[in-house]
Amino acid sequence: MNVLITGGAGFIGSALTDTLRLAGHTVTPLDNLSVSSRRPSRKGLVVRDVRSLTAQDLDGVDTVVHLAALKSVPASFEVGGFEHNVAVDRHILHAFVGSTARRLLLASSCEVYGEQQGPLAESAPYAPRSPYAAGKVATEQLADIYRLRLDGDRQIGIVRFFNTFGPHENTDAVVPAFLEAVGENRPLVIEGDGRQARDLTYIDDSVTMLTRVLDAPALLPVINCGSGRAVCILDLARAVIRAAGRGTITHAAARINEISSFTADLGLFHRAYGAVDHMPLDEALALSLQTRVPAVTAA
């Protein structure tokens, strides 16, 4: 495949770039570096804003994987995040439809499910509780609209990420924030009582799932990418302390509109692409602790 990855300097994008290249694919990572990256400098990285891409830029590309986004849920309550993400996503959809590229895989989020009980299947209704989540709902609905303009074997797919974590992740997510805290001998700060649960997936497992999706002949309209098991934040903090051999816990105010639990239903994924052996949490945390490097930004 000839693959273009937006957000290619980011946490998931850079890992996917490496894996696809090792498999022999031609990969162009693209990123405007507006969000700092903890990855070392990327070979062949195109420093460019997604909104500058034209349909002609996508001609000759087999598959576009669109991962670029401002992904902070708390920050999305400030003005700008919702508008930015929706504008970028609509732009890539518009450019893709006007190009000769064959497939577009768009990143969405478990946040679109909101507060619902039990494992979350792709057929569950939308129930966003943040501007970030509402933006992802808008993107998914835009994808439905743009699919109507496709012909032949051209495809648009959506992958809903749950909580992917691992080395080189920025500290705007709970796992890297905990890892950095123990590394700097600071308390691990839990927002709320810590009973909220999250589906945690190690980066290698998420990339394995993504490559299964990309290797298949057809993209499904929507697919979950998670581990299928939830860990409460208090237990996660204790696991980080075990892995590091030190650490303390403190509590802060709960987040606005905090969701009590996310767990991926992987039934559709397993039927379409087969089961994935997920790395145990303690082992994944130990590996993540080994790689904590300073953030880098554009020159």
Rank of each mutant, 00 (worst) to 15 (best):
L188F: 01
P280K: 02
P128N: 04
A252I: 01
P167S: 04
Q196V: 00
R255G: 12
L268R: 14
H168I: 00
I256A: 13
A127Q: 13
D282A: 12
L93P: 01
S76V: 05
V222M: 12
A101V: 13
A243Q: 01
T17D: 15
G98H: 07
A121M: 05
G10F: 06
A173K: 15
G228L: 07
S260G: 03
D172C: 02
P176G: 02
A253I: 01
D49C: 09
T139K: 06
A264M: 08
H270E: 13
F262S: 01
A127K: 11
L268H: 06
A237D: 02
S34D: 15
L22F: 01
K71H: 13
R292T: 01
I156T: 05
E122V: 14
E140Y: 04
E184H: 06
V137G: 07
S260Q: 10
L33I: 06
R195F: 04
H94F: 04
N170H: 02
P280T: 03
H94I: 01
P221G: 06
V35R: 09
F77P: 13
L289R: 02
A9T: 09
E140T: 07
L105T: 04
P187D: 01
Y202W: 15
A230K: 04
P187W: 01
R129W: 06
I203L: 14
H84I: 11
A173L: 06
R51H: 07
P74H: 07
T297E: 12
T63C: 14
A264T: 04
N185G: 01
G8W: 07
D31A: 10
Q196W: 03
L266M: 15
D18H: 13
P74C: 11
D151C: 08
S76C: 10
V174R: 01
L150I: 06
E258T: 02
Y273N: 08
T297P: 00
L20W: 07
S123H: 12
T171Q: 09
I12L: 15
Y126K: 08
R242I: 03
V47W: 03
R129G: 11
L106I: 11
I158L: 13
G80A: 09
S76F: 09
L289I: 03
R195T: 14
A95C: 08
C225S: 13
G114H: 06
T263M: 12
A87R: 14
T54S: 15
N85C: 06
N224P: 08
L70C: 07
T250Q: 08
V27D: 04
V222P: 02
L22A: 14
L67K: 11
Q196E: 10
A121R: 14
V47Y: 03
A218Q: 15
A216N: 07
I5C: 09
L234K: 09
S130F: 11
L220H: 07
E83I: 07
R39H: 15
A264W: 05
K71N: 15
C232N: 15
G44W: 10
I92S: 04
E283G: 05
C110M: 08
V27W: 06
V276C: 10
T208C: 14
A95K: 10
G247S: 00
D172P: 01
M1V: 10
D282V: 00
L236G: 02
V79W: 13
V137C: 12
L289Q: 02
D59M: 04
A275I: 03
V65H: 05
A298W: 10
S206Q: 05
N224D: 08
R149C: 00
I223Q: 13
